[in-house]
Design a protein around this nucleic acid. Sequence first.
DNA 1: TTTGATTGGAAAAACGTTTTTCTTATGTGT
DNA 2: ACACATAAGAAAAACGTTTTTCCAATCAAA
Lengths: 346, 346
Amino acid sequence: MVTIKDVAKLAGVSISTVSHVINHTKHVQEDTRLRVQQAIDSLGYKTNIFAKNLKSQKSNRIGLIVLDMCGLFFPYVTKEICRTAGENGYTVTLYDSNGSFDRETLAINDLVESSVDGIILSSVVPQAEKSSYAADLHKLLAGAQKSIPLVMMERDFSPYGFDSICTDSYAGARTAMEHLIDIGCKRIGHIAVQNEPNGRLSGYTDILREHHIPYDDACVLSGDFTHESGYACTRELLKRNLGLDGLFVGNDQMAVGALHALQEANIRVPEDIKVIGFDNIFICDVLNPPLSSIHIAKRQLGQKSISLLLDRINNGVQPSPYKETLEHHLVVRNSTVPNTPLHMSW
Amino acid sequence: MVTIKDVAKLAGVSISTVSHVINHTKHVQEDTRLRVQQAIDSLGYKTNIFAKNLKSQKSNRIGLIVLDMCGLFFPYVTKEICRTAGENGYTVTLYDSNGSFDRETLAINDLVESSVDGIILSSVVPQAEKSSYAADLHKLLAGAQKSIPLVMMERDFSPYGFDSICTDSYAGARTAMEHLIDIGCKRIGHIAVQNEPNGRLSGYTDILREHHIPYDDACVLSGDFTHESGYACTRELLKRNLGLDGLFVGNDQMAVGALHALQEANIRVPEDIKVIGFDNIFICDVLNPPLSSIHIAKRQLGQKSISLLLDRINNGVQPSPYKETLEHHLVVRNSTVPNTPLHMSW
DNA sequence: TTTGATTGGAAAAACGTTTTTCTTATGTGT
DNA sequence: ACACATAAGAAAAACGTTTTTCCAATCAAA
């Protein structure tokens, strides 16, 4: 391995001079600068990153822990994070927790041990344990060699002292439900997502109550994000013969399964039942029928998370955590076309 | 920061003893071992990874460069790589080249500079430049502080001295085309993928020739992997009024767009035209109609790539590169149901 | 001329480990 | 009782940088 010493010897200067030439950290006379540069080139010298890291106690790496890379949601977030991180001289170390809390914990410990400069986490911890988990996390991050900033993604941990970039599941659910009711649905089913307090399910029940529609436990099932689970839940709902004329599915992936099940049962969408999903992933457009959904700004989620993290890395974490909730909006497609055009009433 | 020195002082031993206790690299008396351990615990000492890296000249990180994380193909590959890497004590640094050769090059340089222990690359380099690119790459990797092993994914670089885990696009295309012809298609269009010599397009033309079906340039268009591009190409094909009764689309994502365009044009699948895709991503099942496809073992691709890479890291790269081609198979769904049941002929 | 600042560069310290070498005390076999 | 091996641990070298300190020479002002 060719080191800075070899360069120094060949150029006939001290190693400090070589370092200064490389890092432009002190003025050095033109002719010696040139001699050094030539020595570097002719030896093919590359500065050793390990030594550099040791001196600076910085890795220029950030850790990213996603829930599930195969779900059409996180790839967009990830892509954006990689891009922005790269532009700012950082590298992304990726973990896929696969929705398992154990693997999430493993990943965090790994990242802390490997001294990343910051972490972006999409946590899977159940609501009940959120508080104690946050405490553990704080201890772990502070106990690292150098306190590591962490940004929470998707879920709000700001009450527990973590910067958070959130999506507003509750508000999104309200929008979706308002829409279904607007177009005339009277009896609406819901396929919920797990572990989301004050989220989609709450939006569902609140809107029902506000419109004086009785809540029926039988109309709600819980899925696990996959289209298989959406399929299974929908079949179960159909079996119960609830007379549903609307269905709010917790995410698009499950909605795909729902449409599948409805089609199999020869129930027409939107004529017999209106269906709306959540996330607005790209396949909504090409489903049959095209699926209405609540658009979540995935790229923005990535963008804001990494920007915030970089800020914390450079300027230190602030005593009071930052919280931002991303906008969402309704995207109407054929799956929620009203049977009677609304304006025919006059 | 609490260092090994602090531990040594508190325990009343030398730092070398502490190191040996931590790494179990030499026997130390039970009582001193205990004293050291207590000192470690009470100080909350964590070994500094940068110093460790410097001594060992190892990072325990591998780099992964994917073409596009948002394409339903690489997430599976990536997930598998992350999992296996983690199980073997390695960490994955992710880059998304977004199909851009410049960004791919940037990523590689980055990885080499940051001294990863190995690289898995899904390259986007055009065929014509493959050879010179490979040469450059060899130089770059060898010129690193410590020669870095690299495994090529998806494309065969074994003639250029790189270990390669490939998918066989050519054979897959042949299978797809044979199937279309089997079920009675006489005039088959193709939406090709770019930059794939001896791949899907060759399979397409070869099968045509072998069945004495004349090749017509007008029936072939080139897409860019996205469903938008599949949509656009299909519309263009329709405009040309070619009388197609079969369509082989280079990947499923584009096929999604193709189905969309056909539906818009009121052309029934499979009654009027049979459509088959490539990759067998999960949405094939839930499209309308469900899309026949060529199954590519994505997880296996990741698995084999990382295993091979780990082997090279541990045992050195071999003089003659390893090459493996993954199996594929046909998955028939409704989009290629024959109009007249085949067995009614007797 | 003398003093004091400025400059270009060398020398040395530091970063926190691992690993090799060196020391001393404790056996063991004759 | 003597040489000799073994064991446990200390001391020191090494990894390749960055950064601080130091030195000598040049230059400007008094």
